[in-house]
Write a protein that binds this DNA or RNA. Sequence first.
DNA 1: GTCTATAATTCGATAGAC
DNA 2: GTCTATCGAATTATAGAC
Lengths: 208, 208
Amino acid sequence: MKLAEKKDTKTHILDVAERHFAIYGFAGTTLRGIIKEADVNVAAVAYHFGSKEDLYSAVIERFAKPVVEEQLSRLRKEIVKRNVKLTNILTAFYEPPIALIKSMGKRGATLSLFLGRCQTEQEPIYSMIDKHFAPCRDQFLLAMRQVLPGLSKKDYHWNFEFMLSLIVCFLTRQQVISKRYTANENWQVDDVVSRLVGFCTAGMQDSK
Amino acid sequence: MKLAEKKDTKTHILDVAERHFAIYGFAGTTLRGIIKEADVNVAAVAYHFGSKEDLYSAVIERFAKPVVEEQLSRLRKEIVKRNVKLTNILTAFYEPPIALIKSMGKRGATLSLFLGRCQTEQEPIYSMIDKHFAPCRDQFLLAMRQVLPGLSKKDYHWNFEFMLSLIVCFLTRQQVISKRYTANENWQVDDVVSRLVGFCTAGMQDSK
DNA sequence: GTCTATAATTCGATAGAC
DNA sequence: GTCTATCGAATTATAGAC
């Protein structure tokens, strides 16, 4: 907020809350910490969002909605093709969140941490998170079964879990790794996506 | 604690604290919650451990020490061989924590969650955790470079991060997945290790 | 070693003026 | 919509008796 001031208060609180929840988790975040940094009154949070849980819900929804919609859109375009390929399905899954995060600059880095945090939140926060991602996840799980015949049900699910863990790994470790070995934080969407898709495709198809 | 009562108070507190830190994280864990479940006095924690951070430090040390020692011992036996293989190095890394967790039954399940939690803790807890795992991690990183010639420095590190994320994924998701598709929580160490090693070996060697 | 009692903070939430 | 003021609860940590 330098010039062009006047992002409305509600959005401003949302931005600060997003970063706090990402860094400290739900339990470790305090409303006082948020309002102090956002330089708003404590009652403003209650007025615009309600409780601390309601605020978290608003944060997760703003993040998850565009990602999930883009993933499903991309998936639909793939599964109508005659020869559906694992590589394309993986790309449809990996690219939307990575591209979104890349396009958002500093806020993208915050969202990366946030997604990592989502993996270890407990009830009732976990259900709140899962509600936003589960339908999309199930669609991809279904699609993957079509391109990976011959695997047991158990194998499907473990491969799928590994696929999920890889993107979480990238998003949460990206800043550390990039900075450690390239002296800056630059990375390209295509590089990252192909790295993830490559590792995952090989792991799913060529293991044993 | 049924018969054979009298685990000493210090160990008892440690056991309960381990589970609380695993489930709720450092910030989400309260000393009151621990002492209530352990049925000890609040002053007992201060007497035996000191502060909340000191208690966490005791928990992480008890868990990490035997795992890291076994991993390094296994690694040393591998790297003196004439033909070091990636598969063997990965097995040396994956098997000790998985075998330990399997052998510990219910407490092993708790330790799995705990390791997942470690991935998202913040300072000063993160440094406390990293201090215990970093030396071992660096040894494996070094060994892997010998068996993966031709990869860039950046590729090494990303592959290594993926390798780490896979075991964290397994440990934290194991209960959910196993229960969902086998109606029980049984799993065999060899099965899991070969699954992880297979996926990771393929991802590292056959990608692109 | 174990306990009670409590100090000193900090938290989430809300009432009510403007 | 925004603010001040504050309540009630929960937290870590400690002092001191036994």
